[in-house]
Computed example of a mutant assay.
Amino acid sequence: MKHSYSFPILLTSLLFVTIALSALNTQVPLWLVREEFSLGQIGLVGSSYFTGNLVGTIMANWFISRFNARFTYTYSCIIFAIATIGLSFSMDFYSWAIWRFFIGIACAVTWVVIESCILVTGTVRTRGKMLAVYLTTYYLGTVLGQALLQYFPQEVLYFGLVIAVLMGLAILFILLTHYKLPKKKKSSFNIMPMIMYKPSRVGLIGCAIAGMLIGSLYSLMPAYYSHLGYSDNQVANWMVLLILSGVIAQMPANWCADRFGRRIVLLVESIFMMIACGLLIFNVYGVLAIILLGATIYTIYPISMAWACSCVRKQEIVSMNQAMLLTNTLGSLVAPAVIAFIMDTLSNTYLFISFAIISLYFVVLLLLKK
């Protein structure tokens, strides 16, 4: 790569965005619980964010072609900051759903820009390492966001102003890079052949399942612990443990996937996830269960992504990346709303019963895969 310093600068910018997003994703359900929103409404606000992710993923190529990679990223950060401050205007369901929708669009576009820059500039030999470093940076930013949450102001407006400062830093760093992405002649909907491509199907299903699980965790886990009587700091600590487990598991899980095969590793992870859900359902060995849950849920996506990408040619990788984000987002969009409704109707424990059912489906799918 001509400008070798661009990659670490890109990751630094990503770090600021991820810290902001991580803190906001945990704080929003806590604000809504405090204002006595129902679990169903909290789940729908979470789904509106993931609906924005879906729209942003589909439109990202159009934005990149029109404004180029760095300015598209810059405008996305500005939208993120404005929408977060917008949350302070009124505390009602529809306003928060709309603002979270715009935040979702902004986040999805930044992810497409970053992942596409990595995939286009990396070689066959370096691409896997760059993606591993990217995901590790993303999860470390997520952990930092949870750890720093106790130092963020609790007032919605001032919280939004801190987010705006982080977005300003992200913009400053992205403008120091020299990334350029090729413009596509076709519509962004040319990802459909990637979604229908049979050899990549299990990888794409894995991306969708990862979206269902992670989306539900971010949208509903803080509310789950809050309903158990935990303080905001205790909720943040549990989320730190969950995500940090995923960070630590990244490199070993990906090494095992390369050594023993992606199918075997995903199968073992799904079984461990079912065990973790069982422990949480019966409320025993809570710390061990959260460590197992984080280590498995957060490593399904990168392994599934590598599986799907290994089935296509280099010139199709960016389209496959968009297809993976799309399926991941669809899972994130549907699951929180459905699981929240079940939890509201039955009990909070159904968060983990739902996870166990999803894991069981993936186990059966992987066992049937030749």
Rank of each mutant, 00 (worst) to 15 (best):
W62Y: 09
A20V: 10
F7Y: 14
L266W: 04
L242I: 15
F159G: 02
L54F: 15
L30M: 15
G160Q: 00
C77Y: 00
W96V: 03
I342N: 00
L24D: 01
R70K: 07
R34L: 15
L217C: 13
A81Q: 05
A323W: 09
V162M: 08
D92Q: 10
R70N: 00
L87E: 15
L293H: 10
F362A: 04
T126A: 00
Y350D: 10
L293S: 14
R70W: 04
L30F: 12
H178F: 08
K180S: 11
Y301V: 09
P199A: 02
P29A: 02
L166W: 08
L39F: 07
G46T: 08
I205Q: 09
S95I: 11
L54P: 02
T327I: 10
A132L: 14
M192F: 10
M212W: 00
Q27I: 06
T136W: 10
C107G: 13
I85G: 00
Y139G: 14
G206E: 04
S13G: 15
A170H: 03
I303G: 08
H227F: 12
F282P: 01
Y218Q: 10
Q154K: 14
M324C: 13
G211V: 04
R313Y: 12
W31Q: 03
Q315M: 09
A132D: 00
T296A: 04
V143C: 05
S216N: 04
L242C: 11
I191P: 00
L333G: 01
L175V: 07
L288T: 12
I214H: 11
G168W: 08
L279P: 10
A335C: 13
Q315K: 15
M167K: 13
T121L: 07
P153N: 00
S22K: 05
F63Y: 02
S231I: 03
T57E: 11
L172Q: 09
N321Q: 07
M59Q: 00
T136N: 09
D258P: 03
V143N: 05
I317D: 01
K2L: 08
G278M: 02
I281D: 02
L166R: 08
Y75Q: 07
K185T: 14
M305Q: 13
A236V: 04
F102G: 02
L148Y: 07
M167R: 14
I300A: 07
G40D: 05
F173P: 00
W96P: 01
